Amino acid sequence: MVTAEGRSRRAVFLELMESEGPPESESSEKSIFFSQEEEEEEEVDEEEDEEAREPEETGTVNPLLQPALTGDVEGLQKIFEDPENPHHEQAMQLLLQEDIVGRNLLYAACMAGQSDVIRALAKYGVNLNEKTARGYTLLHCAAAWGRLETLKVLVELGVDIEALNFREERARDVAARYSQTECVEFLNWAEARLELKKYIAKVSATVTDTEKGPGKLFKEDKNTVLNACRVKNEWLETHLEASIKEVFEQKQQLEDIVTPIFTKMATPRQGKSAKSIF
């Protein structure tokens, strides 16, 4: 038999990922990392999820939780780096300890918007693209809770912004579902930049891979394409605040250069007098 306390605690575990929005009270963040040894295995239906209340704060608390939620980066670093700290040897195990839906302490930091904590913990080699049982990543979590600065740090650290959850949603879609407008705008911007980066990489690979390329290419044309790709990469690196419109314009400019050359690559040549680089 599942007790009322058991139902409430389990509902809080599922609240962020399965309800129609983040919990109204962020104090429930701490509850997801209490010891779960006595948790029953029965499913909690959606009605119970919606009616969930804050569980009693009982059980063994993960010693990393408090510094993670309060932004105590120095405290976390002492645990990880001081051999004399009583939790030092279990630091990584404590960091990766999961709740019943597969969320570790990094998710608590995302919920609390502790961007500096995420940045600090990333250097210990954690997988920032790890997914929960239902496919949610840290980016999905930060997007759902409207943690814009945390989203920026995660993107800066190179997380996969195209990762999908069990609903086939990207983080941008989750932000939209929870009406996190600023997060939607930022992720739209990040996706636009990623699209340009991927196009540059694809074009570069096409003209440098003799086996996968669509055809032979004159040296002059190859240099034109590679120079154009280099210029666009440099533009991305030096225009970190460029708008989505500007990013799309850069991509269109590259396409205008590349398309006629690739069309020529795919067109059979007449005669053999012309020399190519291959």
Rank of each mutant, 00 (worst) to 15 (best):
L236D: 00
C229R: 05
T137W: 02
A52T: 05
A274I: 13
E185C: 04
A205W: 05
D209N: 15
K264V: 05
R147P: 01
W189H: 13
Q180P: 04
Q77V: 07
E42A: 07
N233G: 05
L194Y: 11
A176H: 13
E98A: 01
N129R: 08
N129L: 05
L95P: 11
E156A: 09
T150C: 08
F262H: 10
R9N: 02
F13T: 04
R134D: 15
V153Q: 09
L254D: 09
C229N: 09
K78G: 01
K197H: 10
S35Q: 06
G6V: 00
A171Q: 03
T208R: 13
L139Q: 06
E98Y: 00
E54C: 05
A120G: 10
F80E: 04
Q90L: 12
D160S: 11
P268T: 03
V184M: 04
I79T: 12
E20C: 09
L139N: 07
T132I: 01
E130W: 03
D45E: 12
R147Y: 02
E98V: 08
E54F: 11
A68R: 09
I100P: 09
F218R: 15
V101A: 10
T132Q: 00
E185R: 15
K131E: 12
G102E: 07
G213P: 02
A11R: 13
L16V: 11
K232I: 06
S28F: 02
L236Y: 01
K245R: 14
A108K: 02
Q97E: 15
D221I: 01
P23V: 03
T263Q: 14
F278Q: 14
E41N: 15
A176D: 15
G21V: 05
G135Q: 01
G146R: 04
K219C: 00
E130D: 11
L14M: 12
E220P: 00
K275W: 08
K222W: 09
R10C: 04
E37D: 15
K222A: 06
I118W: 07
E191I: 12
A205L: 06
G6S: 11
G75W: 01
L226F: 07
C110P: 08
E43I: 08
S35Y: 05
K123Y: 08
F262D: 10
I32S: 11
C229F: 09
S28A: 08
E220W: 03
A205Y: 06
M1S: 13
T181H: 14
Q180E: 14
F13Y: 15
K219Q: 10
E246H: 05
K219R: 11
K251C: 02
Q252C: 06
L240H: 10
R167P: 00
E24W: 02
N104P: 05
L196T: 10
